[in-house]
Write a protein that binds this DNA or RNA. Structure first.
Lengths: 125, 125
DNA sequence: CCGTATCCATCCCGATACTG
DNA sequence: CAGTATCGGGATGGATACGG
């Protein structure tokens, strides 16, 4: 491959997108929506170790970016469904490729980490 | 696409990889190496707003994961070259696809962000 | 030139408590 | 059920100074 479209500009819109999905929970939440719409508690149960606070916050961000849509049913008790938008679905293609790469190469990375020896502070001349 | 290989396990090796490249600088550093080997100062100048401290730390992590190799020339002044390994080059394929997605869809995301209205705290029944 | 060490501000995120 | 409000510890990262 060749040089990507990233720039040094801290306001680079591409970095703005990668920063969002690069946080602790976004990919997990998106992944749990790949098989179809889910309600708040279902997502939370599936991920397991996410707090209510972070799930709500993550969903707001994904909604704001246009990756997820939110549907409220005014019932008692309330019910809220979340679902990937077409934009979100299209995002999951390259994301899926990256995750598959990580799965396929996890052994190589683990081996590299185990065998790594930090460089000496300075080179003897 | 279908469900990815991510798990809820916080020690999931796939998340271990994504967490690393999802930090503030790793992708930028990798990107500056796709065109060939570079020395420390060249990378720093190309990225611009990265501190010496964070560049050194990021390079250590990428080295530890096996994505980047480090070559020291025992000269005065010292010279250190960094280069993508085959593993690092292969990583840049899915990463590049993701970056290209971000570039192609940046307008859609920006529009979504601008038009977003946060949901009301509660639904009136 | 290529780092490391230290200090410090900030942000992220978990825990907890509370509400419609 | 589906959130919001608040607090606090830990991680992240910038600035600076220093060293081989």
């Amino acid at each position: 491959m060749t040089k990507t479209a990233m720039t040094r500009d801290p306001n680079c819109p591409i970095r703005g997108i990668l920063d969002r999905i690069g946080d602790r929970w976004s990919l997990l939440v998106l992944d749990s929506l790949v098989d179809g719409r889910q309600r708040f508690t279902e997502i939370k149960r599936e991920i397991g170790d996410i707090s209510q606070r972070m799930l709500a916050q993550t969903l707001r961000h994904l909604e704001q970016d246009g990756f997820v849509s939110r549907t409220v049913y005014p019932t008692i008790p309330p019910r809220v469904d979340y679902e990937l938008t077409p934009l979100g679905e299209s995002l999951m293609e390259p994301v899926g490729a990256l995750v598959e790469w990580a799965a396929a190469n996890r052994t190589a990375v683990r081996t590299a980490r185990e065998n790594y020896v930090p460089p000496p502070a300075q080179v003897a001349l």
